[in-house]
Design a protein around this nucleic acid. Sequence first.
DNA 1: ACCTGAACACCGTTCAAGT
DNA 2: ACCTGAACACCGTTCAAGT
Lengths: 229, 229
Amino acid sequence: MPTRSPTTGSTNGPARGPGRPVSFNRNHVLDVAGTMLMNGGIEGLTMRRLASGAGTTLAAIYRHLGDKEGVLSAVLDRFSEDIPRTPLTGTPQDRMLAIGQGIYAVLVTRAWIVDILRRGGSTGTGALWFAEEYIAAAEELGAHPIDALNSYRALWNYVLGALLTRVEPEQTLELDTPLARKILAAAERDGLTRVTTYVGAPRGTSERLFRRGLIAVVAGLAAQCRGKQ
Amino acid sequence: MPTRSPTTGSTNGPARGPGRPVSFNRNHVLDVAGTMLMNGGIEGLTMRRLASGAGTTLAAIYRHLGDKEGVLSAVLDRFSEDIPRTPLTGTPQDRMLAIGQGIYAVLVTRAWIVDILRRGGSTGTGALWFAEEYIAAAEELGAHPIDALNSYRALWNYVLGALLTRVEPEQTLELDTPLARKILAAAERDGLTRVTTYVGAPRGTSERLFRRGLIAVVAGLAAQCRGKQ
DNA sequence: ACCTGAACACCGTTCAAGT
DNA sequence: ACCTGAACACCGTTCAAGT
């Protein structure tokens, strides 16, 4: 997939003014794609709307960025380069916690990334330092290198699941929704008294929920690294 | 959404033989939908192919099952009813582990469920007993009821993430794939020596990986329920 | 040599027109 | 009253035909 951009330092937007027109402004297209993803998720970005929104042509996008998969991973790479590598301090377990929190913070405002990661498997290259730091901390606790990597994968699983099940703050749990009624009815039928009691309980913010679970997960993973189980 | 099925105990397949034709065989349609999901995931099921595959009409599906969302949740419900409630034994922590393993085992052969859960949020009503049992175990360890429910959510997050990042056994990690090369190059550029070293390391089966992580996660969650942190 | 309009083969969803 | 063929408004992707 040849992706050379003839005039890299070109101005924003479609061709304008005199002179040779900018045939394809890669950065501008990716910016527009990112905005579309931010607004409508992975289904809100269509090749057609991207083309017209970026002032270019459908076929041009296919030529320069490949298919939709190519566009998505290009956006992911571009975005992940902006993730700052912040220095971590404290005990290894403190750092593992900070890493989990950091990944969550980076991804929570960009829900579409989860969809991309799910498809391709490419973690943005700009986020690799999270893995590096985690593995270092795990090794410091005594984990075998390969176990340290797998421990990171476990943390990643928890974070990913939390992002997936995250609910928007405004959508408070309604007991009157048909879904809730159905669950409640099924739970009562099967004599699931605990589920019945708590199905409507307030769940706090997703962030608090995530953090509390993360603390437990990291504690468990750290203990496993120390060999205590 | 009226979903009455006039002749519930109808024969399989489309109308055949003499007599009043079976206008719409709900169970048959859902079976076909389940097969399609099993083969091609959530994108392998299209309303058109479902209609022709089940020997019915596009509009009939919309009439009886609603839109695609409705079809998916109907399939999910039908499937979740087949989940057997197995008795759990051992310590509370043992049971929490068994629940995590049980959820994984149920879902791992049906990757499409993850996609449905991601969209609607409806957990199949047949799987509610997992929550019931987990909450009971967590309470037994000393957790406040609401914390027990949130602990279950944390376990669920880990399982969900593991299902999402799961790789098929046959797709062994290739170092020659362009993605692997790109990651490796980026890691080297940033001096991430640990990532560089382990990116090609064998990762074992996804099942082993899941289990080892689950043990650590459950240990951490159980400790949190006991109030030890 | 480079670019793209127009086509292809699909989608999910709806409703006027049939029986 | 019940059902559905045919249409609507989209998709992702490709390539013959233009300049």
